[in-house]
């Protein structure tokens, strides 16, 4: 695991420029440009050519998570400009209204497994059905979501086993019972230790924890340690 970075939405809410400026001072080589909220989409797309992304070896783009059927075609059209760059497009499966509309992006779509609030995309079985409909799509394995849905990490192990070859990137943060992305604690480290052996070595790690700017470096270290040193939880069995 040598690709690691942050989601711009976690680093600076609604301000990708500020997020990139903060990341410029950190030893990160990956980034997810976030347009999770619809109003963030067009400003980010319009600015893509102006962003200095030279420090990053891996870039992905998070699509909006909520929109209407009227807005859907426009969003897909805008995301074409992302797909043309070869960047994976992270998408919440429950956001899709018209499946056919997304066909032009089929090879760029990277579905994220969902938290417990969402009606679909939470379990291995849910994802199976999804990939039946989108056979070229890949997976963004959100470890925090998987841990929130199933504290035993059984579902996460099943996902990692069954969709190993589809895993494009990994989201890391702790997700509390209110579905907020918060800092990594021992609970997530412990959970992560149960699946780390099943994860592709080259899958980039994208940190989504919402922490104060002063704690970004510490959060980066915690996330890095989860992959590189699991000795703390080496005997972690239930």
């Amino acid at each position: 695991m040598n690709l690691i970075g942050f989601s711009t939405g976690a680093v600076a809410f609604g301000d990708f420029k500020r997020a990139l400026a903060l990341l410029a001072n950190m030893p990160v080589n990956s980034v997810e440009l976030s347009a999770l909220r619809l109003p963030e989409l067009n400003p980010l797309i319009e600015d893509l050519d102006n962003l200095d992304l030279r420090q990053f070896r891996y870039v992905s783009f998070h699509a909006p998570s909520r929109f209407t059927s009227e807005q859907e075609p426009g969003i897909v059209a805008a995301l074409q400009r992302v797909a043309e760059r070869g960047w994976p497009i992270i998408l919440h499966p429950d956001a899709i209204i018209d499946r056919d509309c997304w066909k032009p992006l089929a090879r760029s779509i990277c579905f994220e497994n969902m938290d417990k609030r969402k009606p679909i995309g939470r379990t291995c079985h849910d994802l199976e059905q999804l990939f039946d409909r989108f056979p070229d799509a890949r997976l963004c394995l959100d470890v925090g979501h998987a841990h929130q849905v199933d504290r035993t990490m059984t579902e996460a192990r099943l996902m990692a086993q069954q969709f190993h070859d589809r895993i494009m990137q990994i989201h890391v943060s702790e997700v509390n019972t209110r579905s907020e992305h918060v800092h990594i604690s021992a609970a997530l480290e412990f959970a992560f230790a149960k699946i780390v052996d099943l994860l592709p070595d080259n899958a980039p790690l994208i940190i989504e924890s919402v922490v104060p700017e002063t704690q970004l470096s510490k959060e980066f270290e915690r996330a890095r340690r989860m992959f590189t040193d699991n000795s703390r939880w080496a005997l972690a069995t239930d």
Partner: peptide
């Protein structure tokens, strides 16, 4: 603990 039961809590 005011949240989901987690087998990891004891270890923590």
């Amino acid at each position: 603990i005011d949240g989901q039961a987690d087998p990891g809590h004891l270890r923590i």
